[in-house]
């Protein structure tokens, strides 16, 4: 049913991703699908990497490690943004179309105080994209 599954990842909060990644790996094995990790970085030094190049290498290593551990093909797609906090939603939407994914699996949190004012990333994709979205609550 699914050929390409996308998982948006925030490398600074890897522990919050575990459940979503495990779900993606199970579905990937079940349907024989490839899994695409999409990570967005700014050009300024951040918690994960000091430069965009470093970030790309980190995401690639992360994908390789998951491929080995989970026995499914994980691919890395690092995107550089001038303003990640704002552009994240649109980049995820654009990448989902570029890669041609048929399912997006997103780690999300239980809605909290701030979510009343700012929509979650998963919320944006559900409203704007025709692709199926699987929201995994941590």
């Amino acid at each position: 049913m699914y050929k390409n599954i996308m998982v948006p990842v925030d490398l600074a909060h890897e522990s919050r991703l575990e459940k979503a990644l495990a779900t993606a790996a199970d579905l990937g094995r079940h349907y024989g699908a490839e899994i695409h990790l999409v990570g967005v970085t700014g050009v300024q030094p951040g918690a994960v990497a000091h430069t965009p190049e470093e970030y790309k290498r980190a995401l690639e290593e992360f994908a390789n490690r998951l491929s080995r551990e989970k026995g499914v093909g994980f691919h890395a797609h690092a995107e550089v943004s001038h303003d990640p906090a704002v552009e994240l939603d649109k980049i995820i939407e654009r990448k989902s179309e570029e890669i041609g994914v048929d399912l997006v699996i997103m780690a999300s949190h239980v809605p909290g105080f701030v979510d009343h004012f700012v929509r979650s990333n998963a919320g944006y994709l559900v409203e704007h994209s025709s692709i199926s979205v699987f929201v995994v609550r941590g």
Binding site: L11, A12, H13, V48, E54, R57, E61, F62, R65
Partner: peptide, 20 residues
């Protein structure tokens, strides 16, 4: 933060500090 625990090669002139 709970960073991904992988070693990545830094630029040669990156300042070595334990501050994350």
């Amino acid at each position: 933060t709970d960073n991904v625990d992988i070693s990545i090669e830094e630029a040669p002139d990156a300042i070595e500090t334990d501050y994350e």
